Amino acid sequence: MKKIIIIFLLFISFKVTAQDKIAITEEDYSNSKVEMADVMRSEGKIYVLVGVIVLIFAGITGYIISTDRKVARLEKLAREVS
């Protein structure tokens, strides 16, 4: 049953496309203005966005560090027992 599901999903994935290809022009290479960032910066929202990204990154980093410490403690305990 598992093989059938995998084959089915494989065939479905051949039909799926993310988006059509768009030709890149010379204007795309010379465009240095990012309107979304300029608007967010002028309204002060860019700092909120950067703050949220920093908080998420700090949370993930803290979680990884605490998990690493727990695993190291368990490995030490397992070495002592055996």
Rank of each mutant, 00 (worst) to 15 (best):
M1R: 07
M1H: 05
K2E: 09
K2I: 10
K2D: 12
K3Y: 08
K3N: 12
I4A: 01
I4S: 12
I5K: 07
I6L: 12
I7L: 09
I7C: 05
I7A: 10
I7R: 07
F8K: 11
F8G: 07
L10E: 00
F11T: 09
F11I: 13
I12F: 01
I12V: 11
S13H: 03
S13A: 02
S13P: 02
S13M: 05
F14A: 09
K15W: 08
V16I: 13
T17W: 13
T17M: 12
A18K: 12
Q19Y: 09
Q19H: 07
K21N: 15
K21C: 08
K21L: 15
I22Y: 06
I22Q: 15
A23Y: 14
A23S: 12
A23M: 13
I24K: 05
T25S: 05
T25K: 00
T25P: 03
T25R: 01
E26K: 15
Y29D: 11
Y29M: 10
Y29R: 04
S30W: 11
S30Y: 10
N31C: 03
N31H: 11
K33G: 06
E35L: 10
E35R: 12
M36W: 14
M36Y: 15
A37N: 12
A37L: 15
D38Q: 13
D38M: 01
D38S: 13
V39A: 08
V39W: 08
S42Y: 05
S42Q: 07
S42M: 05
E43Q: 14
E43S: 15
G44A: 00
G44V: 04
G44Q: 04
K45Y: 15
K45V: 09
I46N: 00
V48W: 04
V48H: 10
L49F: 10
L49M: 11
G51I: 02
G51L: 05
V52P: 00
V52K: 02
I53P: 02
V54A: 09
L55E: 05
L55I: 04
I56H: 01
I56P: 03
F57P: 02
F57C: 11
A58F: 05
A58L: 09
I60K: 02
I60M: 02
I60G: 00
T61G: 08
T61H: 08
T61E: 01
T61Q: 11
G62D: 01
G62W: 00
Y63K: 03
Y63N: 13
Y63S: 03
I64H: 11
I64D: 06
I65W: 05
I65A: 02
I65K: 01
I65H: 04
I65G: 01
S66V: 07
S66R: 14
S66W: 03
S66C: 13
T67G: 09
D68V: 14
D68F: 14
R69F: 03
R69E: 03
V71L: 07
V71N: 10
A72S: 11
R73N: 12
R73M: 08
R73Y: 13
R73S: 10
E75D: 15
K76I: 04
K76Q: 08
L77Q: 06
L77E: 07
A78Q: 09
R79Q: 12
R79M: 06
E80D: 07
E80I: 06
V81Q: 03
V81A: 08
V81C: 10
S82R: 14
